[in-house]
Write a protein that binds this DNA or RNA. Structure first.
Lengths: 221, 221
DNA sequence: CGGGCAATAGCAGCTTGCTGCCAACGATTG
DNA sequence: CAATCGTTGGCAGCAAGCTGCTATTGCCCG
């Protein structure tokens, strides 16, 4: 029986003093999962984490960030996520809560944040391959079930209002246009006009393709 | 800075010798996430894990098991999952891989299985609250995105072979039938014949509806 | 009130999708 | 070898879907 290395760090100042170099030396992969960016109390800490990898992405570094919709409710965080996505980081939105920020660097080091007030929080740091592999697999499960940032935001477009939703319901019920239009009390021409708008919104060239998109995004439920 | 308790155990015999009592003494919650039940090489070990909690479920113990569809491909495992679900355990199916069995007992102890041949595998055991809480949160994210066993089995009706998959890909790409058929090297009539079969499989009256079904069931990825 | 604008509705022409029918072909069997 | 069966492919007729065009309608504003 042997012990593997797991250390606990109190406060993010100590974390950065002891492990800050890890963020500067990311080689192949950086993944994190969190509610939002408020794990970090100090803006320069956020910037350090967020921006230090920006040049490295173009060199082949894989960055994957998994957040909850809470992160998008804050305009600054929203803008930031769009920025990092624009430079090549992969960002997805997960509906379930992620109360413990989890960071895995190059699959060599893992940092787990405890729950608490930003600035006064415990972090667990480990290099144990077993722990890292296990947690990475669970991260992957959440990642695969999450929605790409772009898709998530597209889902929020106001154009899918009550009228669009009603069209989706009719389409999803498998009705012909004529029957659907009659049921909705609109003309066939208007129904088809709205279907065409929806197709454009879903960026689809066929009804099957549009249906797939709608189904994947949960728009019909 | 302090160290928390993390130990590594080699082989499941040693695991049961050192930690087997944990499985007998589950008080409030038992959660696990795994590909299937083949983490355990010995049937009596599986039975011990599976059945020791059976009476306790009626006493308010919460048991949550998250598996991949691989577990359902084996008739014995399928039957077993149905059995434990029938006595009150919550069972869900997760599409993403879960290569490292993760077990958390009463949120006090966590066991992570390494990858390897059953019978010759490393297990990491920890009582660190930070690790457990963090991993539990990730488990929860995967849990919430997973499908209840019953729902999954109800959904599991379409059996789509390679031919059907190719049709799905073409449809999902938004191609016209003529283009898709040409690309697949089959006649338009045959392509449409296969599309019609697929529509019947998906129990759909329109292509949009079929697309929704395919998207919801993840058949196009 | 009249004018302007956006949305709706009806119609028509065209394309795409659906399916029956029949001939041809390949594989299998007696 | 011939017979049988299942699958494929071409053709045709029809239904459903797509979109342009024009007239109509409803709403708003000066």
């Amino acid at each position: 029986m042997s012990n593997d290395q797991v250390i606990t760090v109190r406060g993010e100042n100590e974390l950065f003093a002891r492990a800050g170099h890890l963020f500067a030396d990311v080689r192949t992969e950086f993944v994190c999962a969190a509610t939002d960016m408020n794990t970090w109390s100090q803006p320069h800490a956020r910037a350090a984490i967020a921006d230090r990898m920006r040049p490295a992405i173009t060199s082949g570094l894989v960055v994957r960030k998994l957040y909850t919709p809470v992160a998008l409710a804050d305009a600054e965080q929203r803008r930031h996520l769009l920025d990092v996505a624009a430079v090549g980081a992969h960002v997805r939105i997960c509906r379930a809560g992620l109360p413990h920020e989890t960071i895995i660097i190059d699959r060599r080091v893992m940092i787990l944040a405890g729950v608490g007030v930003p600035g006064d929080r415990e972090f667990t740091v480990t290099t144990s391959p077993a722990l890292i592999d296990g947690v990475h697999a669970l991260f992957q499960a959440g990642w695969e079930a999450a929605v790409a940032l772009g898709d998530y935001l597209r889902q929020d477009l106001p154009q899918i209002g009550p009228d669009g939703k009603a069209i989706l319901q009719a389409l999803g019920a498998g009705l012909t246009d004529e029957v659907a239009a009659r049921r909705m009390g609109i003309s066939l021409r208007t129904y088809r006009r709205r279907v065409a708008e929806l197709m454009k919104l879903l960026e689809s060239d066929s009804r099957f393709q549009a249906g797939v998109r709608a189904g994947e995004l949960g728009l019909t439920s």
